[in-house]
């Protein structure tokens, strides 16, 4: 499944990183500790988090993640948006809670 298909099925907002909408979704990872994601998220995962700091994109890039979903209606700052565009990794959003979006993501990737 491509990121663009996931965006459609989960009704996600695309904040930035449109160039990466063709990336392939291999799975998911949910965590708000960036140090944890840095050490454990697999390449191709979609990362669900509440954190909106620009370091999120640096770590998504480091782990070669498919996309980032910011949950609970949190909004990323300009620096995070710029970084997403630069790296070509989609920065997505949902008003659903971390619990709900993770459940939905699991049901379409699991």
């Amino acid at each position: 499944m491509k990121v663009t298909e996931m965006v459609e099925r989960l009704s996600l907002t695309v904040f930035a990183g449109h160039d990466g909408l063709g990336r392939i979704v291999e799975g998911g990872y949910t965590s708000d500790l960036l140090s944890d994601v840095m050490g454990h998220a697999d390449a191709g995962s979609v990362w669900v988090t509440l954190q909106t700091h620009r370091n999120v994109m640096a770590i998504a890039s480091l782990r070669d993640l498919a996309a980032v979903i910011i949950s609970s209606g949190e909004k990323p700052g300009n620096e995070t948006i710029e970084q997403s565009n630069e790296d070509g990794i989609p920065l997505l959003g949902t008003t659903l809670s971390t619990y709900e979006i993770t459940g939905k993501l699991y049901s379409i990737t699991g």
Binding site: L34, H53, N55
Partner: peptide
């Protein structure tokens, strides 16, 4: 530290 630190929360110092 592994909790409430810049490294635990943000991975590294921006």
């Amino acid at each position: 530290r592994q909790s409430f630190s810049i490294t635990s929360q943000l991975g590294f110092i921006p």
